[in-house]
Nucleic acid binder design. Sequence first.
RNA 1: CGGCGCGUGGCUCAGCUUGGUAGAGCGCCACGUUCGGGACGUGGAGGUCGCAAGUUCAAAUCUUGUCGCGCCGACCA
Length: 477
Amino acid sequence: MADKKMVEEITSMDEDFAQWYTDIVRKAELIEYTSVKGCMAIKPDGYAIWENIQAELDKRFKATGVRNVYMPMFIPESLLEKEKDHVEGFAPEVAWVTHGGLEPLAERMCVRPTSETLFCDFYKNDVHSYRDLPKVYNQWCSVVRWEKETRPFLRSREFLWQEGHTAHATAEEAEERTVQMLNVYADFLEDFLAIPVIKGQKTEKEKFAGAEATYTVEALMHDGKALQSGTSHNFGNGFAKAFDIQFADKDNTLKHVYQTSWGVTTRLIGAIIMVHGDNEGLVLPPKVAPIQLCIIPIQQKKEGVLDKAYELRDLLKDTVRVKVDDTDKTPGWKFSEAEMRGYPIRLEIGPKDIEAGKCVIVRRDTREKIEVTLDEVAAKVPEILETMQKEMLERARAHREAHTYVAHDYDEFKKIFNEKSGFVKAMWCGCRECEDQIKADLSVTSRCIPFEQEKVSDVCVCCGKPAQKMVYWGRAY
RNA sequence: CGGCGCGUGGCUCAGCUUGGUAGAGCGCCACGUUCGGGACGUGGAGGUCGCAAGUUCAAAUCUUGUCGCGCCGACCA
């Protein structure tokens, strides 16, 4: 029963994971394709997930002193070009605005692919004294990157995100903020999205264009591929020098500020789908689910059934996000629909239940049916949601552990990636050549140098020279 | 950007080889019977075949181009 695939419209994930993902995104009505290539229409059920992510993250940001601002969506070419690494990193994928109405612009402008340059331009005039620091700003917006291959949520030409940009008086303070925000992301992903992450640092090859150091939270999807789920960058004072952002310090000397930036995107919705989803559809962790409980009346035209359903809704509406599916579909249809859309729990209530003073609650993740008396419902529902949230995280963590391997030499490393899919922990000498070699041989990249280091060998898994760090390797989205 | 595949009512697709101006199932609308894992009956609406040229008496069907979508690869959140 549990393994039976009831929703034929969804391709089985074992058969074709990519198609399964696309099916979920469409059938759960998260997005619709549009006439604009690479840009998706985010539908109400998809956007509601983003709104919950936004609300929770925004709360957590503000608890650390972040304030929200808004910058222009256009960047003059001359501004984008100020920091060399940065422009080289982004130039290949920006969209250009060349005309204002019918008149050609004196200088073309790109649509922001990210807003470091705009924040720098702003801070340049806004920061004069150590008393003006730190600046801890964030903006919620969309950015545009002209991607060649696009996928809903995972890679679109326009995507929604938040980008935090901070300026500090000292390098230490910038580093502290960089790590702090990475921790905010890690905690958020685990607590709220039930997605366990590996925290670590990106290698030189993988770090952000213009950054001194990039920290990342890496998650493992159900198919064993890695997803970079949030990044936090320490810029040192490189951007400040390029943009001439100086302040008079306490010692009465002019100094450049130290900066950070950090962001997460609607890609997180893709992560939720690929970590928790199953062959029946989406499975949303209770905390992020726009609808947490769907009440499905059985024989709803019978006297009193709908009334009881509404009564239960009213009883629960202050503690959980609840709706009654009172459409005239059959119950079987509604069950499948509720599963497709990933509602954490559903409550079945029919004439027999009402007579017996009970109802049936079904968990989306385990599809376990729980009989609950109507007196207990109000207490039981939040309890079940809490348990489910916790178990989803545990299950995702167990899946990640089961798909994390250790390689001591290159033969072993290649064997694992040729036969399996997941994270591989292996030592690395620190040189770019080995990363390039591994990429060329296996399409595998370094995901991060984890903060929690283990020594699994003395030598680099690729070249055999003395190793410096243990690295998580994987195939990534 | 390279490779492969696909564009025909809202969706999934048949028709194309062998040109003769559209079909099915599902969905949708109405009414009735149903309702504990995607119910059923009857009636109804809805497309000119992605777009553009070309060949032809005649193009969904042949040719060329173009746009879009999906997957794989390179690049990237």
